[in-house]
């Protein structure tokens, strides 16, 4: 369910190259900035492609996964990080190893922002997973002159992921009917309980890989002659232009960071939000959203007959 599905939307039709550069840009920007405004705006920038691509339902699964982790990150942060001046709660007792822990407003806020950073990355990743055909990623790699055998490994792995998942499901079922209780006992016991699932899974995969190799050789794989490619990723001038534009967003971000914009002090007290960082956030946001808005407008203004689907 959480994988690519064929659909005719402006986002699905968009060339994978700019989309992947876009996701990498968001990843890097979210890692170099810790300003709350920038982080939140980066997250908001990932929403329009999800809407235009009609993948909101699947996308929200990934976001919910992230939301599930935020409390964990926050808890860990307030438990181990006692910086900050606004103490919300003090534990009276002296604990071994922890000392006398305090919970501070600053640590709480920092934890939340780190959670949002995770959300940004997950969301951008979700857009790529849901709107780029795995084959397009393969073709993109070929376009970037990655050796065919390496590309083939990527392609074969993604081809057999669904097979592997259904294998896990069946084998788990089999071992449960043999009296295996996966979710019982201590953590060590639970991990040990998985062994009867792992062994057949690995053995099946090994046997499968031999069969796949056989089938590939039987269709002339490994012939010395130069291999041709039936489908190649086509990059139009427009695609190149969009890619360059998105890449320039990354450059803007990196330069701004070097000039000291978009930083934020969480400790010892939360510093005020500066106007510069708001301007920077809005600038990055606009630059990241413009490509999607423009493909959406072009799509809607073109004749419906011209919608040919993925190349």
């Amino acid at each position: 369910m959480m994988v690519y599905k064929e659909a005719d939307t402006p986002i699905h039709r968009m060339n994978p190259m700019p989309k992947i550069i876009w996701a990498i840009t968001i990843l890097i920007l979210s890692l170099i900035f810790d300003n709350p405004v920038v982080l939140i705006l980066l997250f908001v920038a990932t929403i329009p492609p999800a809407i235009f691509g009609k993948i909101i339902k699947e996308w929200s699964f990934f976001v919910k996964l992230g939301l599930f982790f935020i409390p964990v990150i926050v808890l860990l942060n307030i438990a181990f990080n006692h910086n900050g001046e606004h103490i919300l709660y003090t534990l009276g007792h002296n604990l071994p190893f922890f000392g006398s822990p305090v919970i501070t407003l600053e640590a709480l806020f920092y934890g939340i922002m780190m959670g949002i950073r995770l959300l940004v990355i997950l969301s951008a990743f979700a857009i790529i997973t849901l709107s780029v055909h795995p084959d397009d990623i393969v073709m993109l790699m070929l376009k970037m002159k990655v050796p065919y055998k390496s590309v083939l490994i990527v392609s074969l792995s993604s081809r057999f992921i669904p097979t592997l998942l259904s294998d896990v499901e069946t084998i788990t079922d089999v071992q449960r009917t043999r009296g295996l209780e996966l979710d019982r006992g201590s953590i060590i016991k639970r991990i040990k309980n998985r062994v009867p699932v792992l062994v057949p899974l690995l053995a099946n995969s090994l046997e499968r890989s031999v069969e796949i190799a056989e089938a590939m050789e039987a269709r002339a794989f490994g012939e010395n002659k130069k291999r041709t490619f039936y489908k190649e990723l086509k990059l139009s001038h427009a695609d190149k232009l969009v890619s360059v534009f998105i890449f320039s967003t990354l450059l803007v971000g990196i330069i701004a960071r070097f000039l000291g914009y978009g930083t934020y002090e969480y400790y010892p007290v939360l510093s005020p939000i500066e106007l510069e960082s708001i301007i920077l956030g809005v600038l990055l946001f606009s630059m990241l959203v413009i490509p999607y808005v423009s493909v959406w407008i072009t799509y809607n203004s073109s004749e419906p007959l011209a919608h040919g689907g993925r190349q």
Binding site: S155, R159, E211, A215, M216, A220, E223, K225, T228
Partner: peptide, 27 residues
């Protein structure tokens, strides 16, 4: 050559590409 297991002899993510696989191999 067509094998017994229908799953393990298809190596591509799309039927067209599957058929192209052998043809690409022979260039």
């Amino acid at each position: 050559f067509v094998f017994q297991d229908p799953e393990n002899q298809l190596v591509s993510m799309e039927v067209e590409r599957e058929i192209a696989f052998g043809l690409e191999n022979i260039g």
